[in-house]
């Protein structure tokens, strides 16, 4: 059965495993052919920065990994506008140029149209 699922990723990469867990959960959900969207907000925005050189700390780069999302047919990506602005970033700093920028009210709306939320 097709469920509308929103995965919310709010944590910075590398310092702990939350961001990687979110990514793994997204790929797994995609394999089960669900209607998946992903929302990046708060420090989750930092996962999307271009040119992360994670080999410097012996980790896999989120720049690289998140670039694979289109190959898993995960193309509904949302970015929280206030989080972006708070961090002094613009969409040009991020790897997802096809993402939709949404404000808080739009996110409330997005949440309330889901069957499930995966919180990361």
């Amino acid at each position: 059965m097709h469920k509308k699922i929103l995965l919310i990723s709010r944590h910075a990469p590398y310092g702990n495993s939350i961001a990687k867990d979110a990514f793994d959960a997204a790929l797994a959900t995609a394999i089960y052919d669900q209607d998946l969207s992903m929302l990046f907000m708060d420090d989750g925005i930092f996962q999307l920065l271009r040119d992360q050189q994670a080999q410097e700390i012996s980790q896999k780069s989120f720049t690289s990994m998140l670039s694979a999302l289109p190959f898993y047919d995960i193309d509904k990506l949302y970015i929280h506008q206030e989080s972006l602005e708070q961090r002094g970033l613009t969409i040009e700093n991020l790897i997802v140029d096809n993402a939709t920028i949404v404000n808080s009210a739009q996110i409330s709306n997005l949440l309330n149209h889901q069957d499930h939320i995966l919180s990361f």
């Binding site: 790929l27 394999i31 690289s64 990994m65 694979a68 190959f71 898993y72 047919d73």
Partner: peptide, 18 residues
Amino acid sequence: DFYKEFEISPAMRALVKY
């Protein structure tokens, strides 16, 4: 090449698309 670009091994769907 996929691994070099994305640092993960592709699952079937991704391999087909790539």
